[in-house]
């Protein structure tokens, strides 16, 4: 038994070593840079100046707090609306009907499509000079591109949210559909025979049963939409910017002194995501204890 354990540990060691060096090494290096330690430019003092500058200096604080607000707004809206749409569609798709396989295929079609492609697709379709705007122009419903609502490159992140919804509905859908299919409809049948109407059945039976899976998926989607930069970089505006885009800007700044602020922002993003994961783990553990 003891030798078996040692054998497994030895076999896993090379992989774990590489992952540990890459993950924890870069995390440590990034953390040190966020503390101002960057020997390449002769900065060896360790302090929290970059964090303080990013969050509280006159130069950056406005951008930071508006960026944080936008990031939370986009992540929350994308997660919540995607989950809601996915539940609705999954409830429809679990029924037996002609062409169900085809419908499920189309529902999950955009799962393998990269976020970048979705973002570009959003520009091509929904920007003020995009395909939809031009078609409406042809139909005489809008007279100039400016009459078409600004769905991309807008201050409220509508385009970013729509792009994430487009992509994440399929992700949520595949999880919710799998849960619903594994549960079957008997619990709802029991509730119905006990007098629960459609809404009561959804609220008191379906939702609580899919909630653990839905929560896991929500944390993943929230963390991803909160921390990724490609979609907001393409579909966002100059101000306010989501935190990951701000962090990238600092990182790409030719002035290497800005690297500390970039890393400080990345650490703040990672910290918020970690807090969310701990909240999720706490809720999950509580649910597991209950059930």
């Amino acid at each position: 038994m003891k030798w078996e354990r040692i054998r497994i540990a030895v076999m896993l060691a090379p992989t774990l070593l590489v992952i540990s060096i890459l993950f924890f090494g870069s995390l440590l290096y990034g953390f040190l840079q966020s503390l101002g330690y960057n020997p390449n430019i002769g900065a060896t003092d360790i302090n929290f100046d970059a964090y303080l500058r990013v969050m509280f200096s006159e130069e950056f604080s406005g951008r930071f707090w508006s960026g944080l607000t936008l990031s939370l707004w986009v992540a929350f809206c994308s997660t919540f609306v995607s989950a809601a749409i996915a539940i609705f569609v999954a409830l429809l798709l679990r029924r037996t009907f002609f062409g169900k396989k085809l419908a499920v295929f189309f529902f999950q079609l955009n799962l393998p499509i990269p976020h970048l492609v979705i973002a570009v697709g959003m520009i091509m379709l929904f920007s003020q000079s995009g395909l939809v705007s031009r078609m409406l122009g042809e139909l005489g419903l809008v007279t100039s591109p400016r009459d078409f609502p600004a769905l991309t490159k807008d201050a409220y992140g509508i385009g970013i949210i729509l792009a994430y919804i487009w992509k994440e509905v399929a992700f949520f859908g595949i999880i919710v559909l799998a849960i619903l299919q594994s549960l079957g409809e008997d619990y709802e049948a029991v509730a119905q025979s006990l007098g629960a109407n459609r809404w009561q059945r959804f609220r008191t039976v379906t939702l609580p049963l899919i909630m653990p899976g839905l929560m896991s998926a929500s944390i993943i989607v929230f963390a991803f939409t909160f921390g990724s930069y490609e979609v907001p970089r393409i579909l966002g505006v100059g101000y306010p910017k989501m935190l990951p885009v701000m962090s990238l800007d600092f990182f790409l700044n030719p002035d290497l002194n800005a690297r500390a602020e970039g890393m400080a922002l990345s650490m703040i993003i990672a910290f918020i995501v970690l807090v969310l994961i701990f909240i999720y783990m706490y809720i999950t553990a509580r649910t597991v204890r209950k059930d």
């Binding site: 008997d186 619990y187 029991v190 025979s193 008191t204 609580p208 209950k290 059930d291």
Partner: peptide, 12 residues
């Protein structure tokens, strides 16, 4: 009101 073979008590 139907009582099912596998009880189907709401686990939560």
């Amino acid at each position: 009101v139907m009582v099912f073979q596998n009880y189907l008590l709401f686990p939560y």
